[in-house]
Amino acid sequence: MAKKYVILDTETTGVGENDRVIQLGYVVLGAKDVEVHNEFYSSDVPISFGAMEVHGITPDMLENKPACRDSVAYKRLCELNVSENYMIIHNAPFDLGMLEKEGFNTQMKVIDTLRVAKHILPDEDAHRLQYFRYKMALYKDEQKEADALGVVVKAHDAIGDVLVLKLLLTKLREAVSAAYPSENPVEKMVDLTNTPILVKSFRFGKYKGKTLQEVAASDAGYLRWMLTSMENLDEDMRYSINNALGA
């Protein structure tokens, strides 16, 4: 069976534990064919005003829509969910976590373009999708990409972010090929997704701008305090602090 690449984005009622998927947009790239799926869903969970501010989806847009797991797009995603295929998402843990609430547990190889970008482009001011949309001038090619896929992009549409993500993926693949010329760039992106990111310097707090190595030399106790006392410390920072203390 030919490999397929699923480039996906969700919109949700919010970012909390009880929030749910209200839009699923994805493009499936095969050897010879392209599929586009883009659907709104009803939900028992009300959309938070903060979420509306981000994606512009209002309750009236969801009236008479199916639940996510009853939809054509969701059922097709389940059919595609095999280990030969690839799932490409920007900040994959969020979207996959939301899809898990609908009963979807990915069997695909995952490429998280956010993590790949942090590895390959560590010195960027930000790694958000919209940041790269402007920094890399991806917006200039969006309409051409939409026309090629036969997609009509409307305001507040998940498929619009999918198009940007598809363009970003091309740029990241080129950067990965340049950095690792002897390796398959797609497999390397899967590998980078699962590799801890070495954070070099603080972007917050009293040591903002200082490298972890500098702080390890001058105030190792602060780093040890972070490890033991900061419950929300992400795994990459934990890995990086341990690395700095070990070095």
Rank of each mutant, 00 (worst) to 15 (best):
K4I: 02
W225G: 11
L24C: 11
G16M: 01
V27F: 00
V72F: 14
I89F: 08
D236Y: 03
K144L: 12
N81V: 01
D60K: 14
K154F: 10
K200T: 12
L227V: 07
E187K: 03
A216H: 02
A220T: 03
E174G: 15
L169C: 13
N105W: 14
K118C: 08
V82G: 13
Y207W: 04
E39H: 00
V151R: 03
V176A: 09
V186W: 03
L168T: 05
D161K: 01
K154M: 15
G205N: 04
R115I: 09
Q143V: 12
V215Q: 01
T58L: 13
P185G: 06
L149R: 08
K200P: 14
S177N: 15
F202A: 01
D236I: 06
K210Q: 12
D112K: 00
I7P: 01
G25D: 04
A146G: 07
M52D: 03
G56M: 07
N38P: 05
Y26V: 05
T106V: 12
F204D: 15
P93F: 12
T106R: 02
K75F: 10
A92F: 05
M237R: 01
C78P: 08
Q143K: 14
E174K: 14
M61L: 09
L114N: 02
R173Q: 12
L24A: 08
E142P: 06
E53Q: 10
E235P: 08
E231Y: 11
V54Q: 04
I159H: 00
D191S: 14
D236L: 06
L223M: 10
D9M: 04
V82Y: 11
I7W: 00
P196A: 15
G30R: 05
D9T: 07
D112P: 05
S229Y: 09
N242I: 04
V199I: 12
L245V: 06
D9Y: 00
F204V: 14
R76D: 03
V176C: 06
K154H: 11
K144E: 12
V27A: 10
V36H: 03
N64D: 15
A216F: 02
M230D: 15
V153L: 15
Y86H: 12
Y134W: 11
Y180Q: 06
Y134A: 15
I120M: 04
E187M: 07
H90N: 10
A155D: 11
E102W: 13
Y26Q: 08
I89L: 13
L96N: 13
S177M: 15
G209L: 05
L29F: 02
T12G: 01
M61E: 13
G14K: 00
I197H: 11
A216T: 05
A175H: 09
E231I: 09
E79F: 06
H37I: 01
L8R: 00
Y239L: 01
G150D: 12
F132W: 03
G160E: 08
G221F: 02
T170P: 12
K188I: 06
M108V: 01
L233P: 13
T170L: 11
L96C: 14
M61Y: 04
V162G: 03
V199S: 11
V151D: 07
H37Q: 09
A155R: 15
L223S: 05
